[in-house]
Design a protein around this nucleic acid. Structure first.
Lengths: 182, 182
DNA sequence: CCGTAATGGAACACCGCTGTTCCAAATTGG
DNA sequence: CCAATTTGGAACAGCGGTGTTCCATTACGG
């Protein structure tokens, strides 16, 4: 049986994952050596935790999915006015930062992400359609694409221009809100 | 001196560039072999036209910049109401397709792209700010990020879901228009 | 129709990344 | 403080992409 992580093991594992998120978000084809350096860990150690590159990627996706789910839960998208709920979701996702750009760059069509949202998200959009706060011409799937792409735009904007995190978040939520209005 | 392209040379060169756009837009780290196959050309021939990978990339950027500039010119962003001009620009860029996703994926902050637009684009946004058709809270740079990210979202949407080009374009222009409204 | 240009295939060395093994050093916990 | 765990460095083979050379074949223009 696998030994229970003795604390040190868990810490190292997390350090590697964090570094991998940061490095691979910027350059999806970065080498494992780069990740190891960023994690301040020997390449040997990295291989000890994740035998193959694909194992690391898998763990990364699991981590991203988990955080995505938590963030979705925190946004309570089934409560209150639709647009406000959409903007709460936007805020929560924005805080995930690099973690989501990972999913975004690999495959926008990520099977997970669609299913993660679809139950509640479609319902949210439907709510907005019926109460007139969301343009009925815009399907839920498109609004989801919009949300993701604007988050991406926000992160890029943050990284490239000297603008505060708070200010960027303001721009994104405002733009998302405006884009879905009828 | 380099011999003047005899027609056949120019055709081959163009075939390689077209294939490179298609292949590299989907996977920026695709091999030159993949590009050669897509161009229906031997790898040797490809190397004959572009000695190094970086030479191909450079040519690709030049091609993208040129088409970007033409598209910008066609949109006549200095004419008419600001939002309509923005939507014309959106339409023209949308038609560039893969060519622009290339620039987008490599570096959203592409030095070229900012300078290409900045003269006219900032003016367009200013026009919208003063006549009240564009939310004055949104800076030109952000609107530009928005435009690009929504185009990207549109292309992805087109590729992944069975939606017509025309329909996607409608969604993008509508969303862009909505996003910048005060 | 002949010669030149253009092409593609094969083979080659080179390089960086990957995944593995082995061993010595450092850390940690009891 | 000792022993087990954890770590990192070095070295290695394998692999795929790169860039080059050489040669035979094909296409094209005068």
């Amino acid at each position: 049986m696998t030994t229970v992580p003795t604390g040190s093991r868990a810490r190292t594992r997390q350090a590697i994952l964090d570094a991998a998120v940061e490095v691979l978000a910027r350059n999806p084809s970065a080498s494992l050596g780069d990740v190891a350096v960023a994690a301040d860990v020997g390449r040997t150690t990295l291989h000890r935790y994740f035998a193959e590159r694909s194992d690391l990627i898998t763990a990364l996706h699991a981590l991203a999915d988990e955080r995505l789910e938590r963030a979705t839960a925190r946004a309570r998208i089934d409560e209150g006015p639709a647009v406000a709920a959409l903007q709460r979701l936007c805020r929560e996702y924005f805080d995930l930062g690099d973690v989501l750009s990972l999913l975004f760059r690999d495959q926008v069509n990520c099977d997970e992400e669609t299913t993660v949202c679809d139950e509640g998200f479609e319902e949210l959009v439907r709510r907005g359609h019926t109460d007139g706060s969301i343009d009925p011409e815009l399907p839920a799937l498109w609004i989801q694409s919009l949300l993701w792409s604007q988050l991406y735009a926000g992160w890029s904007y943050l990284a490239e221009h000297g603008v505060s995190r708070h200010e960027v978040l303001r721009l994104v939520t405002r733009s998302i809100g405006g884009a879905v209005r009828p």
